[in-house]
Design a protein around this nucleic acid. Structure first.
Lengths: 250, 250
DNA sequence: CTAAGCAATATTGTATACAGATAGTATCCA
DNA sequence: TGGATACTATCTGTATACAATATTGCTTAG
């Protein structure tokens, strides 16, 4: 055992889940490849029982697929799957924005959003944008979307959005990194910031339909840019989960 | 062992999952109540390992909630949660209808839908509607929604809709049964049939926005009727998952 | 040379034993 | 009498052993 004096505060199951997810996302396992339990035991260092639990959770998460005869394999995604996931997430977030607007939120509730917005503004103002600024942007952008989602105050919706975001290429971070590969990166970020500002305004003014529409447009922009980045094949290594895309050759 | 010569063709895990789900939905466990693994072992007759797997899957499914200190409890839902789930499902199905319309489906693909529609027409034409006809209606209605979802040809979306439908009160069957409690039951069924017909027409004519709008309206109608049924407290025993609703007293 | 069948091997599914943690209870002290 | 502490019992988390099944490679027959 004691190969690695891992943190005792997290369960073996969680540790295995994290390790396996990293392995899959980093491309250590090819899409369609079967993932053996014993092999997973060796790489993670935990026993079979927690490994199995982790595999089940990763399947529910959408990263793995059950093999009819038993066991799991790494799921393969088409480009269309990814584009659909982005639009799906945008639709869900649009509903969240509408709920927030219709249900009414206090100015107090919107404050964290505006704060996030201002920090983002500071980053986007740079020209050109540094690599470190990009990482900050990704984190802040993710935070903004999380805050917006929670503003809906609807546990079922929040849960569903969380699950839709589990696939990493469906998350805004993915968009942004892909967008950063484009020559018009800065322009795109400015537009995204416009969207963010408008949706907060719309929520404050109780304009539910407008808030929803802008979030869907936001996602459509992201999908369009990702499609462009895939066509140009530029800086695709920035997109973490690209290892999961099934190439046209398969 | 051999207490029950259960079907050997399904795994113990699946058997445990089905048994526990039935137990929860039938109200055998109260919302918020802790579900002990040993107790589950006794009631299901399978060992702890598959029981644990089943519990994890039921948690992902949304019927159970993890207790921070360990183990699981039956999840409790508010009335608002249920209404939100219905609107959520409608939004997702709206997206599916739009995808189907925009992507273009052949008349051949729409045939099963129309067939389903005709059978439903035959049932709705009855006045008054018999109890047996209602069960048939529920099954057919569920089939219609499934077919419509699959018409989107988008695996990520289909997967998400399946998960959103896991909570039984979010499924059309639930609506219909609740609707049957209302005096205007037949009228409501006729309107729902109109929706069904319109969405198929819209898809055939490539009217994506219209297809989407009508599915969302469909869900809003269902939510309104369920709200009415809850207010009138009529025939609520028809709604299978009502055991999960946390009463206002809690 | 190919195909089919069989055997060996590896892998999953299941059961159970053990250890650590948590909650509940009872007792003792203030 | 109330509160705190210690102890006990139960439960979960983890590991491993066992059984059944699937897969693969080899051999043999056509």
């Amino acid at each position: 055992m004691g190969e690695r004096e891992a943190d005792r505060s997290v369960s073996q199951t969680v540790r295995a889940q994290l390790a396996l997810r990293d392995l899959i996302l980093s491309g250590g396992l090819r899409p369609g490849e079967r993932i053996s339990e014993l092999q997973a035991v060796e790489t993670t260092g935990v026993s079979r029982t927690p490994v199995r639990m982790a595999l089940v959770r990763l399947e529910e998460e959408g990263l793995l697929e059950a093999i009819p005869s038993g066991g799991f394999m790494v799921k393969a995604f088409s480009e269309r799957d990814i584009l659909d996931s982005i639009e799906l997430r945008g639709t869900l977030e649009g509903l969240a924005a509408r709920f927030a607007a219709e249900r009414g939120v206090s100015a107090r509730d919107l404050e964290p959003l505006r704060e996030c917005l201002n920090e983002l503004d500071g980053l986007v103002r740079q020209d050109p944008i540094s690599v470190e600024a990009f990482s900050s942007y990704v984190a802040l952008n993710a935070r903004f979307h999380t805050l917006l989602t929670e503003l809906s105050r609807s546990p079922p919706l929040i849960r569903q959005i969380d699950r839709a975001s589990a696939l990493p290429f469906a998350s805004p971070s993915g968009f942004v990194m892909a967008q950063s590969a484009l020559p018009e990166a800065r322009q795109i970020l400015l537009i995204a910031q416009d969207h963010h500002r408008i949706v907060v305004d719309a929520i404050e003014n109780r304009e539910g339909a407008r808030a929803e529409a802008i979030m869907r447009e936001h996602a459509r922009l992201a999908a369009r840019n990702l499609r462009l980045a895939l066509r140009n094949r530029t800086h695709l290594d920035l997109l973490p989960a690209l290892a999961l895309i099934r190439s046209a050759a398969d």
